[in-house]
């Protein structure tokens, strides 16, 4: 079954483009289904396909040589990925993995996309907006990871919220911690894992257990 024009019109690059023009793309687009946890793109792949999420969610991430993962973005329906590889003529700088069951991915090869873009300024405009949005996101991550001691801030937040109140233990979500630390949730997840690596805390399902208060204090810069 090929992609419908309606589905194409919901993809970030093709919003606002006349349906007549999109008709020619319907035969060119491919589609693939992925199960939860399956890899769509691996870092270093040289495929020149531009991918769009049709249904489900795709996690975009980088993995360090020690196996640590940094989530870069959660890609939702209509959003693209592998743009950097396609437009820079290079390998993919990140991996992409299906997070949801029955994740539907639409793909178009660079050789098919470029001639269409040459004839459709609106698609070029949309692509620039998508790429600029991604650049802004990446710059935010660079700022958080390079200039902010997020792990220290998260350590401080944990110390400040570790007091046992009348209603029991305090509770915080990763989003709340991110908002308090002035960073992205993806960076908080990484910081919690780093704190666990130091031996200051232990993560257990819905609990963050402070196992070495002195060390956590030190990491928080509180003593």
């Amino acid at each position: 079954m090929s992609i419908t024009i309606e589905s194409i019109s919901k993809l970030g690059y093709f919003k606002g483009v006349d349906a007549d023009r999109l008709a020619s793309l319907a035969q060119i687009f491919g589609q693939r289904s992925f199960l939860k946890g399956q890899t769509v793109v691996s870092e270093g792949d040289s495929e020149q396909n531009l991918y769009f999420v049709g249904a489900g969610v795709v996690k975009i991430f980088k993995t360090s040589s020690e196996g640590k993962e940094q989530i870069i973005k959660i890609t939702r329906p209509g959003e693209s990925f592998n743009d950097i590889a396609v437009f820079s003529n290079g390998p993919s700088p990140y991996s992409a993995q299906a997070l949801g069951t029955a994740t539907l991915i639409y793909l178009i090869h660079k050789n098919d996309l470029m001639p269409f873009m040459e004839k459709n300024w609106k698609v070029v405009q949309n692509a620039l907006e998508c790429l600029a949005g991604q650049s802004r996101l990446l710059l935010g991550l660079i700022e958080d990871l390079s200039f902010k001691n997020v792990m220290g801030r998260v350590a401080k937040i944990l110390m400040e919220n570790s007091l046992h109140g009348a209603e029991g233990f305090q509770k915080l979500t990763q989003y709340e911690m991110a908002a308090m630390a002035g960073t992205a949730r993806e960076v908080v997840g990484r910081s919690l894992k780093s704190l666990e690596d130091t031996g200051a805390v232990r993560l257990e399902r819905h609990k963050i257990i402070i196992v070495n208060k002195d060390l956590l204090n030190q990491l928080a810069g509180l003593n």
């Binding site: 570790s162 509770k171 979500t173 989003y175 819905h206 609990k207 963050i208 257990i209 402070i210």
Partner: peptide, 28 residues
Amino acid sequence: DCGWCCDCELVCDTGALQCPYEIVTIED
């Protein structure tokens, strides 16, 4: 067997789903 993977919170764009952590201290 909810393993508290927090993926639901991660993908929820509206903040409808939350996976709060209890912050517990083990006293020395």
